[in-house]
Every structure is written in C-alpha cells, then in structure tokens.
Write a protein that binds this DNA or RNA. Structure first.
Lengths: 202, 202
DNA sequence: CCCGATTTCTGACAGATGTCACGGCGAATC
DNA sequence: GATTCGCCGTGACATCTGTCAGAAATCGGG
C-alpha cells in the first residue's frame, strides 16, 4: 500500500527536489505538487493524498491557514508542516490548525520520510529539539490587548495610526507596546514585534 | 566526462534533496556536501569539484565570503550561488566574489542542472528575472558615510553608541540615518536598514 | 453585596529620533 | 582662478517614543 503525498512549497526548485527525494522511497508516491497555499485544498480534493507536506511561507495563503482549511474539508488527509528553523514559534498554532507533524528543514535527510511513515501510523511527530525550544519559549506572557496592539503595529508604522485603528488613546498604545518590549526583553517595538512573531505569540 | 559537484547549504534536508536531484543527471556526480561556509574550501581541496553550488545563508562563513576564498584557492572550481529570492541584492557582490552563476530557489526545476552545464561551457548564468530586478534596484545611492553608519546601526541599537563607535557627533549620525531613510523610501532607520540590506547596498 | 486583584486605559514626563538650515572641504567644470 | 556641485560634519528644533504612577472598569471569591 503506497502512501500518497501532496507537496506545497513556493520555492519550485526545492519543491521539485523534495518530490524526487520522496518518490525514491518505494512506498511513497507524490500525487500533487503546488506552489501556493490557496491551491492546496483543491489539489487535495482532486488527488486525495494521505499526507500533505506544507511549507509555512507561501503566497496566497500561508501553510497554517491552508492546514486549517485542509483538515476541515479533507479530514482523512494528515498534515505535516515542513518549514525553516526560524519559524519554529508556529508549532503551537500548527497543532491547533490540525497538523499532526512538524519537521524542520535543518533536520537529517531521512527525518522527513520517517515523519511521514509515523504520521501514517497514527503518531504525532515533532522534532525533539524543536519541542524543547517551544517548551522553553513557553506560553505567551502577553495580555490580549498587548497582542492586539502588536498585531496592529505590524501594518501601521506610527503610534497614532494604531491608536486610531483600535479606538485607543495614544498613551494607551504606547503603554501596551512598552509592556510588550519589557516582556520580550527587547529595546523597541520593532524588535518586540519580531521576537513575539518568531515565538508564535501573535 | 562527468561534472563533479560540491554542494553547500545549511539546511540538511534541502541539501540532501538537491544532491539526490543532481545525482540523477547522468553526467553529474556530487562529490562533496557540506553544511557550513567554512568547510567549503577544505572540501574543495579534498575532492576537486568542477562546480561548487553555494547557498548564501550559512553558519561559519556566508556563501559570498566562501566564494571569494574558494575562487582564490581553487581557481579551477567554478562557483554558482544558489539562494532565496529575497537575497537577490547580493548578485553584484556575488559576481565580485568570483561567482559565475546565480540561481534562485524559486527557479523552474531544471534551471539548476541547466545552469551547471552552461557554466561548465564557460558561460555566465544569471536568472533573467533576477537580472532585471537587480538592474531596477540599481547602483547604491548611499554615500560612503551613510553606508558606514547603517552598518554600525546593524549591531548598535542606539544613536549614541553609533556616534561613539564612529567618533561622530550624535547629530551627524542622525543626519546620515535620515538620508538613508529618505533614499530607501522608508520611515525609520530599522526599515531603511532592512531595505538597504536586501538590495545589497551594504 | 463587597472587597481585593487583575486588566484596561489615561495623561505627564524625560529621553531618543528625525528633519532642517548651515558652514567647510575637495573635485570637476567653465 | 572662479564657480558650481556633491559630500561631510554640526547644532537646534519639533516630534515621536518609552516609562511611570495612578484612575476607571471588570471579574471572581467570600
């Protein structure tokens, strides 16, 4: 019984190389391969893969959102997130989105095939180094409001804009941003934003 | 006559997948594969590859520096830089470091093998989309001093620290940073730094 | 219902940041 | 030689940003 795979990664060269690598395994077959997050569900419906390997950085729809849609619409397809080590903060959200595996691109060569087989066996698979790092990062210490403000800060450059968008006084916004920078151990809101984002606190 | 290849990329899974992909070509043979920039030269001396494929993001020594060392010490080995689309600003510096090819990971699947063969035939190979983008980004509009200050700003967080390091008045540093933000079309020095870095202006 | 604790929100203040107008210097041009 | 132009360096000014102490609102337990 061969395992049918769907592959999603926006870097075509990488996607193709991974496809070749996986197709070499006698019990694997890559049945679909897409370069955009918003093509994942359609491809899954058309080709009925057993496992979907999704990158996080993709145009259209990111891998986490794609995972959520996919698990809702094609529940028999198991989702494995495959991404860069820097994006490890998304582990928790990936699990909430219904993923059952999380493999980093720094992992040893055979980790991917191994993860696929174990996922098919019903296990959840997470790189142990990664799990430890996530555990160390811990729960988000940010309050709901601090998170809101940080998210708004991502698209709005100035405090006044954020205040206007959230219907807050400027002082309030500055206060939340200050709290966020303290809790992230950074020195300004730009760094706080980056750190919080990396740790999956947004 | 088979073409001997050296592969350098810090993401082991990706490196292995690319290795498998290239080894499938009948006229290619991957003779060395390393995960750090500072291992490139030693591996090249030991295995005498015809072409070295180098990623830019690597620990130890980045791909550009590795390319410079490699072309100096093993001049018969041709260097092809293989990297992410976001790092395209490094094209000029890659060429200055002695690279004869520049392939992005977004390229079509056969672009890499094609690039290797053309490089072996004595051609220089650059993705046309990429060349156009680089041309559009153009020469750096930054003055020498503005570049210095931006580079110092990368490691020092505050204006006072930069001023102390470069023996300038704080006002002067602020002035250069202001110039840099204007020329990059950004709103603060953080963004200016990021943009200038992406475009290879540093 | 009341009390304390937590969260939300605000204005005030000091310090950092970005912009401006200015003078000095060297190279290219007329 | 005089002029023009671009780059380097500086201080002054208005604005933005981060931190603080504390008021109002919310919530859960006694």
């Amino acid at each position: 019984m061969t395992i049918r795979l769907l592959l999603a990664d926006d870097q075509e060269l990488i996607r193709h190389a991974l496809g070749v690598l996986l197709d070499l395994e006698p019990d694997f077959e890559v049945v679909a391969s897409v370069g955009r997050g918003d093509e994942v569900t359609a491809a899954a419906l058309a080709h009925r893969p057993d496992v979907a390997l999704l990158d996080i950085d993709m145009p259209g729809l990111d891998g986490l959102a794609a995972a959520a849609v996919l698990t809702a619409q094609v529940p028999e397809c198991r989702v494995v997130i495959l991404t860069t080590f820097g994006r490890t903060g998304y582990l928790r959200r990936a699990m909430e989105a219904g993923a059952v595996g999380f493999v980093v691109k720094d992992a040893p060569a055979d980790a991917l095939a191994d993860a696929v087989r174990r996922v098919m066996a019903g296990e959840r698979v997470v790189d142990p180094t990664l799990a430890a790092a996530t555990l160390a990062a811990g729960e988000s210490p940010l309050t709901a409001r601090e998170r809101d403000v940080l998210i708004a800060a991502r698209s709005s450059a100035t405090v006044a804009e954020i205040a206007a968008r959230l219907y807050l006084a400027e002082g309030t916004v500055r206060n939340y941003l200050s709290g966020a920078t303290t809790k992230t151990g950074t020195r300004n809101r730009m760094e706080a934003l980056r750190v919080a984002d990396e740790r999956g606190w947004l």
